[in-house]
């Protein structure tokens, strides 16, 4: 859609391949250098990459600035936690419930909020996420504010053992790759063109015959369901779920990952998650006020690299190949 010089296209593909290769190699490299905790760190990064990727489908392609995306993370995590609380360990059931519950929540939230736009849309999505957040606090049966411990990870008929860090890592990796691939198909399909058109010029879309609400709502539900899967994975990594998982600042962080990495691309949010969480780890080691450093970095990215880290890397690649 957006015209790019051939060099840029191939350099984007190259950056994408490098990221995939690096992520695929984290566990063996971590084992070799004897720093096994990197596996956990990158598992978490990829889970947030899934959340950010799902947000970018509606944000970067559909122009819907949802400020409540962490709600689906929470719903997905609580679906696993609550089922486990009742002794239901079946992973298919847990993940199925996580997907269904976050999709239904997105359907309802989207149905109401997509009638508005701009700042009202941002505020309504935030308000709904806050409602779900406070609802989770009020669930005293499930630990309320203190959260809920999960005894065992999801059990996929003993096909995979998610208590093994490396196994969990590759399951998360596989989900991320699957969503990257499905997302790529989606944004380039007829459906994808409709939501991109809606972002570009909503008035014209209506005049040429598109009932936009149903397309936007569908995209909203797909993104919510994808993020619900991220939540279910998060519950498996932490073996714990608490309301904090869907605090409004978390929604802001997912939004920042997308912007940092590159809106309107699917690989960008993955890079954004890596950069954001890596920076958070490094900076919070240095100072408790790490956000005071993160803020300016974001401002700089927005000012000088509108297409985010992904755009930046792709351009460096092009200049290299020319020089």
């Amino acid at each position: 859609m957006i015209m790019r010089k051939p060099g840029v296209v191939s350099s984007r593909a190259l950056v994408t391949l490098v990221i995939i290769a690096v992520l695929a190699l984290v566990p063996p490299v971590a084992a070799t250098i004897g720093e096994g905790f990197y596996v956990d760190v990158f598992t978490r990064i990829m889970i947030f990459a899934i959340a950010a990727l799902s947000l970018d489908i509606i944000l970067g392609y559909g122009g819907m600035v949802s400020f409540g995306h962490a709600a689906y993370l929470g719903i997905g995590a609580y679906a696993v936690g609550i089922l486990a609380f009742y002794g239901v360990d079946n992973g298919f059931l847990q993940f199925g419930t996580a997907i269904l519950a976050s999709a239904v929540a997105a359907l309802f939230i989207g149905f109401v909020s997509l009638r508005t736009s701009g700042i009202y849309f941002i505020m309504i999505t935030l308000a709904f996420a806050q409602m779900i957040y406070f609802l989770s606090i009020s669930l005293n049966t499930y630990g309320g504010d203190n959260g809920l411990n999960i005894d065992r990870p999801s059990d996929f008929a003993r096909l995979v053992n998610l208590s093994n860090a490396t196994t969990l890592y590759y399951v998360v990796f596989a989900v991320l790759m699957l969503f990257l691939f499905l997302g790529q198909r989606l944004v380039n399909s007829r459906f994808g063109m409709v939501i991109r058109g809606a972002k570009s010029n909503e008035r014209r879309m209506a005049a040429i015959g598109f009932p936009l609400l149903r397309y936007k709502l569908t995209a909203f539900v797909i993104a919510g369901a994808m993020c619900g899967v991220a939540g279910a994975l998060l519950a498996n990594q932490d073996l714990f779920v608490a309301p904090a998982v869907m605090q409004w600042t978390r929604s802001g962080e997912i939004l920042m990952m997308v912007i940092l990495g590159g809106m309107g691309t699917l690989v960008g949010p993955i890079l954004g998650a890596v950069a954001f969480l890596a920076l958070e780890t490094v900076l919070s080691d240095l100072t408790g006020h790490w956000q005071a450093i993160m803020g300016p970095i974001l401002v700089l990215v927005v000012l000088f690299a509108r297409d985010g880290i992904f755009g930046l890397l792709s351009r460096i690649g092009v200049e290299r190949s020319r020089g």
């Binding site: 399909s189 007829r190 459906f191 991109r196 570009s200 010029n201 008035r203 014209r204």
Partner: peptide, 26 residues
């Protein structure tokens, strides 16, 4: 009132698409 980021062809293709059956094709 056009789609500025789209190519000229994609501008038209989108309008063609609007009248070529449903667009829940993913």
């Amino acid at each position: 009132s056009i789609f500025p980021e789209f190519t000229a062809r994609d501008n038209i293709a989108l309008a063609v698409q609007a009248h070529a059956g449903h667009n829940f094709r993913f």
